[in-house]
């Protein structure tokens, strides 16, 4: 039962897990900080979204205890956020930084859109794909701001 969903979830776990090896060892502490601070946002936002009935995760891990997607909020998005921030092109011009945001959010929104359409991992009710896009960009932005503040960088609010 739910074979497609399980294959998709399993492969996403494997891909995300392998991507951890590409985080430089020297930046392990930064990565862990980004991981934890993303969780703070994803959990609160994810719980809100499910509690208001905007979307559902019919097939999920730990389904008795939790109606949000444990793997997405606990593991996958925090790891993606690590890659987002550690590879952020802060020295590049304004346009390429906006393009960087755009690429990340659009790619993830597209993947979620197709997962929503063809599997039961996620079901939108009043949720729309552009809400995903906006919330992802916001999460990336807020985590970047927290990260810059934590590491005492300059101009923490600019992208």
């Amino acid at each position: 039962m739910f074979l497609t969903e399980k294959i998709v979830l399993g492969s996403v776990w494997v891909i995300t897990f392998t991507s951890i090896w590409f985080i430089p060892r020297k930046k392990a502490s930064q990565a862990s900080f980004i991981f934890f601070s993303t969780q703070l946002l994803t959990w609160s936002l994810g719980l809100f979204a499910v509690d208001f009935g905007w979307l559902d995760y019919p097939v999920r891990e730990l389904s008795k205890a939790n109606a949000t997607s444990f793997s997405y909020e606990y593991f996958i998005l925090p790891v993606i956020s690590i890659h987002f921030i550690l590879h952020y092109p802060s020295n590049k011009p304004y346009k390429s930084r906006i393009l960087y945001y755009f690429t990340f959010s659009t790619a993830l929104t597209l993947i979620e859109f197709f997962i929503e359409k063809y599997t039961l991992i996620i079901q939108y009710h009043s949720w729309r794909w552009y809400w995903t896009w906006i919330s992802l960009s916001l999460v990336f932005y807020i985590v970047t701001v927290i990260y810059k503040w934590f590491y005492k960088m300059k101009r923490i609010f600019s992208i």
Binding site: L47, V50, D51, A67, T68
Partner: peptide
Amino acid sequence: FMRATKSGF
């Protein structure tokens, strides 16, 4: 979050 989780947030 009665709907979204069964754990004490």
